[in-house]
Every structure is written in C-alpha cells, then in structure tokens.
C-alpha cells in the first residue's frame, strides 16, 4: 500500500484548542509545539480564539461531565470541513481516570474523532505528526466536494 504523504501545504490550518479537564500536561506540550523549539507556526498553523475560525479542534482531557455540552457546542460552531484531534491518553481511552464518576469520556462517545495522539503526555513531535495526519484528512474531505 502506498503511504499517504503530504505533498503540498495548500492552506494554513487554524487550530482551536479546548481543555475538557486535562491535567495541563498535554496543554503545555501543545504550547511547547508552538514556541521556538518546535515552532509549528512556520507551517502556517496557529491557535485561534474562537471555534468559528478553526479548521481543527484540538481536544485534551478526559471530558468531565460538566464540560460535555460545552464540547458539543464548540464542535457544532466549527465550519465544515473540520477535523477533531484528541491529544493524550485520557481523552482517547479514559486513561488513568477511566473509572471516575465525573468523567463522561472518552471524547469519541460525544463527538466524532479523526485523529488520536496517544501519550501521557505525548511529545510535541507526536502532536505535530497528529496535526499532519489531520491535514491529509482535511485535504481528502475538500477533494470530495
């Protein structure tokens, strides 16, 4: 099977980051990916302040019950085509919090997820790899139109 690869960077991805109750571990690694050592802004990716401007929704945290409806609302506000990336073990599977009474996750129970980035927390390299995968998916979605 031919491995899918990014050939051109046709557009700049705008990312909305949402914390659904994470421990900050993934969140600081996401910021680390934006700052000079990893600097994903050189590919045109940047964090935006509102989901209405975003192509990608970056979610961290195990999804606390109190945040469940807010995640849905943020997801519905994003324009099509859109992709969702879950960063971290707890959002992907529940992780160490899987048995807790206040966790409504994993996130794919509530909204459709396209890319999972496992790790507790994942390294910035892994997060960038996840965003590149989302990029492929976005290009495929746009091609269908």
């Amino acid at each position: 099977m031919k491995k899918q690869q990014l050939e051109t960077l046709k557009k700049s991805l705008w990312v909305f980051h949402m914390n659904t109750g994470s421990c900050n571990g993934c969140d600081i690694e996401i910021v680390a990916a934006l700052t000079p050592r990893y600097d994903i802004e050189r590919f045109g990716m940047m964090l935006v302040g509102t989901p209405r401007h975003a192509d990608v929704l970056l979610i961290t945290g195990p999804l606390i019950k109190k945040m469940e409806d807010k995640v849905k609302r943020v997801y519905e506000q994003m324009p099509e085509p859109k992709v969702v990336i879950v960063v971290g073990n707890c959002g992907s599977t529940g992780g160490v919090f899987h048995e807790s009474y206040s966790v409504a996750g994993p996130i794919d129970k509530v909204i459709p997820v396209d890319v999972y980035v496992p790790g507790c927390p994942p390294r910035p390299e892994a997060i960038i790899n996840g965003v590149a995968k989302a990029w492929l998916k976005l290009e495929r979605l746009e091609g269908k139109k």
Binding site: G61, K66, F97, E99
Partner: peptide, 14 residues
C-alpha cells in the same frame, strides 16, 4: 470552578 473535577481522591480510594 469544577470544570476540571476528575474524582481523583475517589479513584485513589480504590
């Protein structure tokens, strides 16, 4: 507050 409540102490008791 309470949006990041994960029930950590409860998990710990198990």
């Amino acid at each position: 507050v309470g949006h990041v409540h994960r029930g950590i102490e409860w998990i710990g008791m198990h």
